[in-house]
């Protein structure tokens, strides 16, 4: 029983991060119908910037409490990622907004490769060690263990998701975003500055991504120029699983994917009598995705949207 509880906790930690990154994909898709493949790299840049700032500050500002340094590092990461996402949208997507849908998809993939290589040039090929932000002493709850950092990951992710839902549903900006998502042209005619709203969507998604990047790097104490790629792919999968374009769906998809992966890896061997092992972890996750899409092509919480003409 404590093993199952532990696997659920593992899955929740993994899933919270997937959900946070998936929100960035789903927000952009909801408004533009575009899959922003560069989002995973924005997450990576967030981790790298936070690491660089932390290294710089611990070197120069001796005697400053670690909490201040960590906060400054996260703030810097968020700021840089927001600026980066704004620039990406302005340079790579806006000029192609009325082009066929394949064109911005290709520039998105190009952006992803470009950012990875720039990061490789700046920070090198080496795996970088991310500093320890919290005590690693694990707490034991009913036989399962969890560290301070993992608690922080779950709490911060949950808070950010609730904050985002509130922003979209109860503010003026949120209403403008929903309007743009429904119909850009009409929203524009109603006095919504569509360009500004789209930029805001990218920038908010990037801020969430930056936080996710810092959390992931801190959790595994590793940062690497390629870390965003696989994470981005998993988060994108989570967004599709939950129903792409739907914020609640992204959260649900992320948590589900995390749980499926961890419980899958933990029990496939036992269920199949050792015939299939933990290397089927990903196969299992994608099998669930395929099954969901076969029966609900729009994802778990997705709504049927009329095809654009």
């Amino acid at each position: 029983m404590d093993i199952l509880l532990q696997q659920i906790l593992n899955g929740l930690v993994l899933g919270s991060v997937y959900a946070l990154v998936a929100l960035g994909y789903t927000m952009v898709y909801g408004i533009l119908g575009l899959i922003n493949f560069a989002h995973g790299e924005v997450v990576m840049i967030g981790a790298m910037i936070a690491l660089a700032v932390m290294t710089l500050l611990t070197g120069t500002m001796v005697g400053v409490p670690p909490v201040v340094i960590v906060s400054l590092a996260i703030a810097a990461a968020i700021a840089v990622c927001m600026a980066l996402a704004y620039a990406i949208e302005r340079v790579a997507y806006r000029p192609l907004r009325n082009a066929p849908r394949l064109a911005p998809l290709i520039t998105a993939i190009g952006m992803s490769i470009l950012l990875q290589n720039v990061a490789m040039v700046i920070w090198g090929r080496q795996y970088k060690t991310f500093p320890q932000l919290f005590s690693t002493q694990p707490h034991t709850i009913a036989g399962a263990t969890i560290t301070d950092l993992q608690i922080v990951i779950i709490v911060v992710s949950a808070a950010l998701m609730v904050g985002l839902l509130a922003l979209v549903n109860f503010t003026r900006l949120g209403r403008a975003m929903r309007a743009t998502s429904e119909n850009k042209t009409i929203a524009g005619l109603m006095g919504v500055n569509v360009d500004k709203i789209i930029s805001a969507t990218f920038v908010i998604g990037a801020a969430l991504g930056a936080v996710a990047g810092v959390l992931v790097a801190a959790n595994y104490s590793i940062a690497h120029y390629s870390m965003g790629f696989m994470l981005g792919l998993k988060a994108f999968t989570a967004a599709v699983l939950g129903g792409i374009g739907n914020l609640g769906g992204a959260v649900l998809g992320g948590l589900l994917l995390g749980l499926i992966e961890s419980i899958g890896a933990g029990y496939i061997g036992d269920v199949t009598g050792g015939f299939l092992g933990s290397h089927y972890q990903d196969v299992f996750a994608f099998l669930v995705l395929i099954l969901v899409l076969v029966f609900r092509p729009t994802g778990i919480m997705g709504e049927r949207v009329a095809e654009r003409a």
């Binding site: 093993i3 532990q6 899955g11 930690v13 696989m230 961890s262 933990g266 061997g269 933990s278 990903d282």
Partner: peptide, 22 residues
């Protein structure tokens, strides 16, 4: 007692380690 697998893109091993711990 068990043979577990991962791949080179992963950094999260909590699931297989939890299984091993059991």
């Amino acid at each position: 007692i068990t043979r577990e697998f991962t791949d080179m893109t992963k950094t999260d091993f909590t699931a297989i380690l939890t299984r091993i711990k059991g």
